[in-house]
């Protein structure tokens, strides 16, 4: 009875419904993109009507929004923040810097592809993406969650060694802590 497939489907449906309609967002403002977020969250575009809400610490957050380029120094902190978040967790890469390096494509100190280091569920392209694009990114993430396809955290768990190898290529002497599942 309890392992009934239909029952599980219903539970999954409810879980996904709540997860997609209540996203606690930790906006990691690394670059210029952070300036788009106040507009997204306040009166003009009001992301709170979609259930997106700011979280103060990684422990409370579901969604890590990385706004802009990541220097190798920042990447360390981002990895630590990502690993402190609790499952289920999602990552949105914001701006072309997280996609292919953007205007920092030949910088000696700025990583180019974010998804080689932590799994990214949705990308928002543009330089800068306007608040409309950010909200469209949220909607895309919601669609993925509803379909059960936003499984970046699972991917990270399964391919942890691959991710660690990539991370260690950049962060040479940084003690990467053991993952706290």
């Amino acid at each position: 009875m309890y392992n009934d497939k239909n029952a599980q489907t219903i539970v999954d449906y409810i879980q996904n419904f709540t997860r997609k309609n209540s996203l606690f967002m930790l906006a990691y403002g690394t670059g210029c993109g952070a300036i788009e977020l106040p507009a997204t969250l306040t009166s003009r575009y009001d992301a709170e009507r979609l259930g997106v809400r700011g979280a103060a610490t990684p422990r409370q957050a579901d969604l890590l929004l990385i706004t802009g380029y990541l220097s190798t120094k920042t990447l360390k902190r981002v990895i630590r923040v990502y690993e402190q978040m609790q499952d289920p967790k999602y990552v949105i890469g914001f701006g072309s810097c997280t996609i292919n390096g953007g205007m920092y494509w030949d910088s000696y100190n700025t990583i180019k592809l974010l998804d080689k280091y932590i799994p990214v569920d949705v990308y928002i392209n543009g330089c800068m993406p306007r608040p409309e694009s950010v909200i469209s990114g949220f909607q895309e993430l919601k669609r993925l969650i509803a379909a059960g396809k936003a499984d970046g955290a699972k991917k990270y768990k399964e391919n942890l060694e691959w991710y660690r190898e990539n991370q260690k290529k950049v962060l040479k002497n940084w003690p990467l802590v053991e993952y706290n599942w």
Partner: peptide, 20 residues
């Protein structure tokens, strides 16, 4: 602003209880 729906806190709590 438009604001979240009035039942938003129920969704939040349900989601928080379903988190690991």
């Amino acid at each position: 602003r438009v604001g979240p729906p009035i039942y938003q806190n129920f969704i939040d709590v349900l989601k928080l209880y379903s988190k690991e």
